[in-house]
Structures are given as structure tokens and as C-alpha cells.
Design a protein around this nucleic acid. Structure first.
Lengths: 352, 352
DNA sequence: TTGAAAGCGATACCAG
DNA sequence: CTGGTATCGCTTTCAA
């Protein structure tokens, strides 16, 4: 007991001390059939030695990792962090480890991250949105692994998709406001071209305003995505300056809506008395604030959960149909590409 | 051109088509000195083939990965997601990839995640808080890699720490409230024993109440961590029921404070007219809400940034002092364990 | 149920 | 600046 070896123990060390072969140790770790006595002995030695198996070696040898590449536009948005939680809830029990990346709403960044994550041979990939660079699509297709696109239902999905139409959801909100009797309705959102879901909501708003024969669209676009609470104040300020007679405002997100409502309070405008304000997302603030905020509820966690399940199903199908192995038939295109539609609901509350 | 091979190309394929050895390809990828002409040719082939290097093989061969294990109690808390952003900002430029884990405030979960992440041979580890299971400490020590504990300044750090004393910060807030003239001050926080930082804030509150000779501590503990906006309403309800003459309330987090303020509005109590309410964390809501919320500002992003820098420094020191190699001298304990103290500030606003 | 041998795909090291 | 060779630590595969 002079000094513990400075090099971490290997599987062969464990095997030696347990008087078995490496393979037996490997089987114990993988939970494969090994006699009860042997298993216990090996486990004991592993514990004594503090042995930690090397995942890189395992991945190289078996040709499969336990990684799932996950890309979201922003980790600070509760929206996407809920989706990540959902993904994790679905995938963790299957021993899969999320490799998380934050694209900052930039497609080039997404491409960079995909490229870098693909180096780890992920079992599958979850992306946000339906737009990607050509290279991203190519990379993913060549990788031949299941892919799911979240939060949108792209016309031409890479593989599978779990989401909803942000445009349709926005139209539903305009319809709701219209049904409430509002006619001069404005929209405030981010200025970034990169936030496709935000843009889709804006487009939905515009389309529905036209469809209902309401006033010309009144759109204010300001600031970066994701819009936060501090977005609302200047945005509604700009809106009211441009169109002082606006009756209702639809915001690209509850965060913005909250900021707008607070600004109205500061200006002595009552909500919805003087002006109605609606949000999007059903974030916690929308039902905790005073007044509570009318919004569109989307199950962000559920999107992650369903996306995870979709990936698991694809992996299972692959296991069944393939001889597995280092991508032998990996090129076989997932012919059963499907889309999972997530429901949304307009939730009328006090603010509109 | 009948059909593209279904198996992804290897480095040897690239080498062959470029008419060079694997080593040259490897050097090109690693950015080491290679003649300009050769480099361009290799790069071109890589692009044509869509070659993606296998990180597992690289890690096995070189004995080092590009992973950094990061564990936070919750990914949904903007607090920790900001810290993660900071870490990423510091580490990404150095080609390091975060391996993110969510412990859900549970030490056993943390241990599980550490164990599983250690299998990937991370270059270093960032943990949240100063309390861990014995096994976690042992695992980390045996791993012999730099470790940083964030958000706390533990008495006996595993290696290094970047944080502040939550108790001291809470005391500062009590002092501020006292200086404002409030005497009957209450505290509302979560009920979970697992949220150490929340507990430390509560302890700081109690200690300072005693130190200032104010009333007996008035503590309400309710709900799980992290406390969210919806925590505040029931919590302040309970507080006012138990001690109706309370003049000021200090909340474990801005989220809770916001919920409490909204509840006061519902009850027709003015803040701070009828009751003062303070938060903790300087979250966005604290300066966007109406009234703005008095709080303690902590640079969550900065904690991540500094933690990342601390890890980078440790890695650099290790490179310099060691012959590197597969953990040869890896056991050499980081004798220069240090702690980085992050400043906090009480920010007086409208609510208190 | 167990073991021996043969790689997995890259990098380190040493020559040239 | 470039190439050959020997691993790296594990799992696969096949035999016993």
C-alpha cells in the first residue's frame, strides 16, 4: 500500500484481479448473462479499484455511441429549456446522453455544431426549426441517422418532425381578438430574420388580418431573439406612437407581452380597459402576472417528449430492420418519415 | 458513379484519394504544419467525401477528449442557464464541448451523472454548489482533472471554486431593509433541503435578524426548488396569515418576489406602501415589473465565465507541468487550489 | 457461461 | 514536411 497507481485502472486490471477475462468484465458492465458469483466478484473489484469504463474505447469498438445531438436556438429561453427537459425525460431512461448545443438562432452556427457533434457519432439528432443550411442537410443525410425537427412542421422535413404551425397559431389568436370585438390590432415582435418561428407568427398575424378584412397590419419589429421582458416596453411605445388608436396588441411572446403591460401601467393605461394585450407561449409569467395574460398555449415540454419518442421509435425500427453494424445499411432512407402535430390552444385571460 | 458507398469514409480513404498518408490528413485536421499544396488537396477531398473524423477514435488514441462535464441543479432556472452560457463562452473558443447534466438538486443524481460523464474522460468538471456525496468527491479526485465548484465558496473545495456566500448576501439584504426602516421582516423560500443556496440565504436572514436584534425570524418554507413565480402567492399568503403585521418580506428569489407582489396587488395591498418586498438574483423580471423589485444582483453569467477561465488556467498549468500523456502524472494534486469570489450588490428599487 | 484473438479509427512517436 | 508502426481500451466474433 505504498502508493496508489497514478494511472486509472483498465478493464484488464479488473479482469486480472477478479481472475476472469476482460470479456467477462465487459459482460458484467453490459448486463449480459454472467454467473451470479462471478458478477458479484467483478462488481466488487470494480468498486474497490474505482474503475470507470472508457466510453471512447467502447464507442470506437462497438461503432455506436450513446449520444443524442440536440440543437436549440437558445438555452436561456424557457421555451427551449422545457423542450430539452422533455427530450431528456424521454431519452435518459434509455441510457442516451444529450449533447446540447445553442445555435443562437444562426443557421451557420447550427451547421458548425452539427458538424462538430457528428464527430461523436450520435445515435440521432434533434434540431429546432425547419430551416437549415444546405450543408447541414447534407451532413445529416450522409450520417444516415434518425433526425427530428422540432417546433415547426417543415414542408420538406429532413426525416421526422414534431411541432405545429406557428402561423396558424398566430391566426387563431387574431381570430380570438377579433371575436372579442377588437378591430385595430397590432403586432410586436423581434427584428431578427433568424427567428423563423417569430416570423411565422408575424406572417400568420398579417394573413389573418387580411382574411378578416381588418385594418392594415400594424407591425413593430424590434430587438434580437429571443425577445425578453424588456422588449415589450419600447415595442409597445413604438406601436402606440405609430398607431395611437390601436385597440389590441398581439405579442410574439409572453415575455414581450408582460413588458408591454408593465409599460402600459407606467403610462397609466389600463389593460385591457384602454388597450388589450395578448402573448404567446403560456409562460409562467402569463398566469402569474396581474392582469393574467391571454396567450397561446404550446406544450414545449411535450414537444421534447414526443421528439424523443419519435427518435426512439426510429432507432428501434433501425435495430429491427438492420443487421446493425457500422452503418452497413445505414444509407437506407427512413422511408416512413412522419410528422407529429402538437396541439395549441388560445387561452383567454384577463389581458385581452 | 453507380452508388455512393453506404459506409462513411475513413481517414484512410481520404489519405488514399489524396495520395498521402493518414498522418498527413491527421495533421491537416489538427492544423499542424503541412505544405500548403497538400493541405488544400486534402481539404478538398475531405469536402468531396463529406468526411467527418471520428472523435471516439481520436479520444482513444490521444487519451484526451474535448469534453467538459457541467452539472447544474436545474436547466430551467435562468440563473443556471446564464451560468452555462458563461461557461460555454469561455470554453467553446478553446474547442471544448460541454457535457451538460441536470441534477434536479439531488446529490445522488449528481453522483450518477458524474459517474456517467467521467466515462467520457472529460478534460475538467464544473459542479454547482459545495456539497456532494462522498462517492462524487472520490470519483472526482481519482479522475485527477481540474474541478470547479460554482455558486458557493465551500469551506473545503474539491479543487477550485467560483462563487460567493449566499448567507452573506442575504444578510446584506436584511441590513438594507433595516436601513430603510423596516423592522418586522419576514422570509419566504422553498421547502426543499436540497437547495443549499436557498437554505444559506435563509440562514443569512436569520443570523442577521438576530445580529440586528430585530424580531424573531418569520420564515415560510413552501414548495420545491427552484421556486418559480407561482411560489410567491401562496408563500406570502401564509406569511401574512402567520404574522399579519409584517412590514417587509425578503424572498429567496426574484421569481418568488414577483409572485408575492402580484398577490399583494390582488389583495389590494400596495407595494411597498403596505408591505415591502425584496427578491434575490436580479432577474429580468425584477427590473421589468411594476413596481421594480429591490434585489441582490449576482452575475450568474460571470460565474460561468470565471469558472471556465479557472478551468482553462488549470488545464494550461497541467500542460506546462506535465509530460501530458495518458494520465502519467495526472495524480499530482492541484496544489494551487484557489477560490474566486464573485461580488454581489444590493440593488434598491421601488418594491422596498 | 467463459475466453482468445482480431480489430474499431485515429494519434504518438520516431525515422527519413 | 512526410510516412510507417505501434498502440489506445474496449467489443465483436467465434470457439470451447
Amino acid at each position: 500500500m505504498t502508493s496508489r497507481p497514478p494511472v486509472p485502472p483498465r478493464m484488464s486490471d479488473v479482469a486480472e484481479r477478479a481472475g476472469v477475462s476482460k470479456m467477462t468484465v465487459s459482460r458484467v458492465l453490459a448486463g449480459r448473462s454472467v454467473s451470479q458469483a462471478t458478477r458479484e466478484r467483478v462488481l466488487k473489484i470494480i468498486d474497490e479499484l474505482g474503475y470507470v469504463a472508457d466510453a471512447a474505447a467502447g464507442a470506437l469498438s462497438s461503432g455506436r455511441s450513446e449520444f443524442v445531438a440536440v440543437l436549440v436556438p437558445s438555452l436561456s429561453s424557457s421555451n427551449f429549456s422545457d423542450t430539452v427537459r422533455g427530450l431528456n425525460a424521454a431519452l435518459n431512461p434509455h441510457g442516451l446522453q444529450l449533447l446540447l448545443g445553442d445555435t443562437d438562432y444562426r443557421l451557420e452556427q447550427e451547421e458548425l455544431l452539427v458538424r462538430s457533434m457528428l464527430r461523436h457519432q450520435p445515435r440521432c439528432v434533434a434540431l429546432t426549426g425547419g430551416r437549415h443550411t444546405g450543408a447541414t442537410r447534407t451532413l445529416l443525410q450522409r450520417a444516415g441517422i434518425p433526425v427530428v425537427e422540432m417546433w415547426d412542421l417543415p414542408r420538406d422535413p429532413i426525416d421526422t418532425a414534431v411541432g405545429f404551425s406557428n402561423a396558424t397559431a398566430a391566426r387563431a389568436m387574431v381570430q380570438h381578438l377579433h371575436a372579442c370585438g377588437y378591430r385595430r390590432i397590432g403586432f410586436i415582435g423581434g427584428a431578427s430574420e433568424r427567428d423563423r418561428r417569430g416570423l411565422d407568427r408575424m406572417r400568420g398575424y398579417i394573413a389573418e388580418m387580411k382574411a378578416l378584412g381588418l385594418c392594415e397590419p400594424r407591425v413593430i419589429r424590434l430587438g434580437e431573439s429571443p425577445v425578453t421582458m424588456s422588449h415589450g416596453a419600447p415595442a409597445i411605445g413604438a406601436l402606440l406612437e405609430a398607431w395611437p388608436d390601436t385597440e389590441a396588441v398581439m405579442c410574439v411572446s409572453d415575455m414581450s407581452a408582460f413588458g408591454a403591460i408593465m409599460e402600459c401601467h407606467r403610462r397609466g393605461l389600463s389593460v385591457p380597459g384602454d388597450i388589450a394585450i395578448a402573448g404567446f407561449g403560456n409562460f409562467e409569467v402569463s398566469w402569474c402576472s396581474q392582469p393574467t395574460i391571454t396567450t397561446v398555449s404550446v406544450d414545449a415540454y411535450g414537444i421534447g417528449l414526443r421528439a424523443g419518442e419519435t427518435l426512439l421509435a426510429a432507432l428501434a425500427a433501425r435495430e429491427a430492420g438492420d443487421t446493425v453494424g457500422r452503418g452497413k445499411n445505414a444509407a437506407a432512407p427512413t422511408a416512413r418519415a412522419k410528422a407529429v402535430k402538437i396541439e395549441f390552444t388560445v387561452i383567454p385571460r384577463e389581458s385581452a
